Simulated assay, not measured.
Amino acid sequence: MVYTVKFSADYKNYEAEIIDWIVKKGDKVNIGDVLFEHQEDKTFEYFESPVSGIINDILVDTGKIIKTGEPVLLIDDGSATPAQLYIADDHKINWDTFFKDRYNENSKNISKNKNYYATQERNKMTPSLRYEIMKRDNFRCQLCGEVASDHLSLHVDHIFPVSKGGKTEESNLRTLCEKCNIGKGAKFDEFGPN
């Protein structure tokens, strides 16, 4: 699975400048390894990796100002599907604006009868498509990492909700466990796949 590592700090609205990247694309890291050095005012600190894996991509250049919650790099734990690697490798996409623009565009294009649109899109979710999405995602919840079992029900989720204009296409679908899918509901995170 490819993890989007977001900058986090003790302060809610924290801003910092990336001083130096300690890692580069392709490096293997473990939990707690230093990824980059950052500075706010005159204080220098190190940002540690929250997961183990291979650096898939660095999303922010040295010298840039970052805020709490901003994606800074992608780490592949080795279980990524080809589709996830393809998406992660295309770092030229600005995910913040991609999903926001798609949301605005699709919301305008939905017919007045939203129920008709939603029904049409949901009817495209065939058992075969469900199976292919779950197989692509290794029958694992893409949020919490739980694997299918007798006590765990898996769902196929629209990342960009149908109720907000999302389409039933492979790039907009992922596997979630019942708990994560119900918790997410028809929400949409403008900062990228959530």
Rank of each mutant, 00 (worst) to 15 (best):
M1Y: 08
V2C: 01
V2K: 05
V5Q: 00
S8H: 15
S8Y: 13
K12E: 11
N13C: 02
N13S: 03
N13G: 10
Y14N: 15
A16G: 08
I18W: 07
I19N: 06
I19M: 10
W21Y: 06
K24C: 11
G26P: 01
D27M: 02
K28P: 00
V29A: 03
I31H: 02
Q39H: 03
E40L: 10
T43L: 15
F44Y: 14
F44G: 06
E48P: 04
E48L: 13
S49K: 06
S49V: 09
S49A: 12
V51N: 05
S52Y: 00
S52W: 02
N56C: 14
L59I: 13
L59N: 10
V60I: 15
T62K: 10
T62I: 09
G63A: 06
G63F: 02
I65M: 11
I65C: 03
I65V: 15
I66H: 09
I66F: 08
K67H: 07
T68D: 01
T68F: 02
G69H: 02
P71C: 07
P71Y: 12
L74R: 14
D76M: 10
D77S: 10
S79H: 03
S79Q: 08
T81V: 01
T81C: 10
P82D: 10
A83W: 11
A88W: 13
H91G: 11
I93Y: 11
D96A: 05
F98V: 06
K100V: 08
K100P: 00
N104S: 05
N104D: 13
N104Q: 08
E105F: 03
S107Q: 03
K108D: 12
K112L: 12
N115T: 09
Y116Q: 09
Q120Y: 02
E121G: 06
E121A: 06
R122F: 05
K124L: 11
T126C: 03
P127K: 04
Y131N: 15
Y131V: 12
K135Q: 13
N138W: 07
N138G: 14
C141E: 04
C144N: 05
H151F: 05
D157A: 12
H158S: 00
I159G: 00
I159P: 03
P161A: 00
V162H: 11
S163D: 01
S163G: 05
K164E: 11
G165W: 08
K167E: 04
T168E: 07
E169F: 03
E170V: 15
N172W: 10
R174M: 12
R174T: 04
L176P: 01
E178P: 00
N181H: 09
K184S: 02
G185V: 03
F188N: 05
F188W: 07
F188C: 04
F188A: 00
E190N: 11
F191I: 09
P193F: 03
